[in-house]
Design a protein around this nucleic acid. Structure first.
Lengths: 250, 250
DNA sequence: AGGCCTAAACTGGTAAGACCATGGACTGAC
DNA sequence: GTCAGTCCATGGTCTTACCAGTTTAGGCCT
């Protein structure tokens, strides 16, 4: 009763579940509802908001699907901390119908990382640099293990973005990561046997790191772009060899 | 009955609405459901999927909230083309709790645009270039109108990203656009009276365009970064003058 | 008196049925 | 041939009831 604010929402065109949905979304955006908060019981909420329980549930369920709510049977509904996985899902859905998604997402990755490393050159703390150095060690150690190596590779680039201190870049990077991950590991599996390649790979990472540690943005970005170019070249060679193999044995 | 595939989903932990939700999501991802398709009526779907109508509605409503479905009263539910607005919403929700979002999102914008213009130097078609040139004309024409000018400014940068031919970059750019828009117009309103500034603004855009037309990636990115730097500087001066005004009249 | 076990009172999850509101199509009259 | 009214299909909402986990409080046994 007392909470019957929903009806007084400015946008009267929305009705029922949509109204309740925006009601909670706004409260989440404004920070009035924080992560961990427990919502009232469904029956009480329905009463308070002046809608029936099914309608309320449609809204709550929608918020849950978006990852904003954590509804637990028998316990209640809890506000969940905003997570990049939602973003990733949304991105995946948006990009699903497009062709050449992998190449395309790679471009986004390059975009984020190149800007991130510029920022990192200005903002990275000692801790950030040490973290990256540690990952670099792991990378060198795990050259012969495509699984660990791939993980370290990913961790290296993620640490770069984190060192930028920009949560927006970080969130977007995390969002596109799942799309990148697959090709990342696969590519590594194909190439980890070549000593020449792995050595160049380590050199590239080292150069990026050194430029960052020396706080040289232009140099760092150039090194990073070079690194990506090499990756691109490798992928192309892979494609060619795959095609040739298929041609020989149709 | 015949469609009772949902129950045989591998993940038995999910129940009811969540199962139906993933059912449709997967069909959307796989392209089995295309934009414009009309779903069966709720009652039929509920029967076919072996769930009650409320449960089905919870799932459909969730998809609608995500922007994947367009449910029309009296007509039916239609698959909607994947839209960047969902992405924008998700991003807004993810970034809501963070401080300094505006600066941060600006960094993401710079990231996207700098990579986009590099790609555009390789890929932009004649049409793309002509479109950008047209917008540039509009920009020059509307120097004294902050509303139109701001719009043209935005259109210019959007056209740059579009010219990259990367839908991923485009989608992400569209997603962060609403967050940028506000500050964009506001800033322009504050500065459009200064002839020196507006002239520099036009020069900057022209230089970016020329570099693009000449297909010089490094040059183009440098011009773009310079453009952003000037914007940053302007914003800082604005902040200072605002602060000073407040100090004089507390 | 204290600990354990059970049952009741929460909580969300699901179902069925009825009714209203809207949109479109069909049919009738003009 | 055209227009208007009716009818049907569809989504929108509510009510009610019951099922299924979770918590808690009270009683029972030790």
């Amino acid at each position: 009763m007392a909470l019957d604010i929903v009806r007084s929402d400015p946008d009267e065109t929305q009705s029922g579940a949509a109204r309740v949905f925006t009601f909670f979304r706004d409260r989440l955006l404004s920070g009035e509802l924080k992560a961990g908060d427990r919502l009232l019981a469904e029956r009480e909420l329905a009463l308070a908001l002046g809608v029936s329980r099914p309608v309320l549930r449609e809204a709550l369920r929608s918020l849950a699907m978006l990852g904003l709510l954590d509804i637990q049977h028998g316990r209640g509904a809890f506000v969940r901390a905003a997570d990049a996985s939602v973003l990733g899902q949304a991105l995946t859905l948006c990009l699903a119908p497009e062709p050449n998604i992998l190449d395309d997402v790679l471009q986004a990755r390059i975009a984020i990382e190149c800007q991130a490393i510029r920022l990192a050159c200005e903002r990275a703390s000692e801790r950030d640099l040490q973290a990256i150095a540690g990952i670099l060690d792991t990378l060198v150690d795990s050259l012969d293990d495509p699984e660990r190596g791939g993980g370290a590779d990913y961790a290296f680039h993620l640490a770069l973005v984190r060192a930028s201190g920009s949560s927006a870049l970080m969130k977007i990077y995390e969002a596109i990561s799942p799309l990148l991950m697959r090709s990342h590991v696969e590519r590594r599996r194909d190439t980890f046997r070549e000593p020449a390649i792995t050595s160049r790979l380590v050199d590239a990472h080292c150069e990026v790191f050194l430029s960052l540690a020396r706080r040289e943005p232009d140099q760092a970005e150039r090194a990073l772009r070079q690194h990506f170019l090499i990756g691109d070249e490798l992928r192309r060679k892979n494609l060619i060899s795959t095609y040739q193999a298929r041609e020989n044995q149709p």
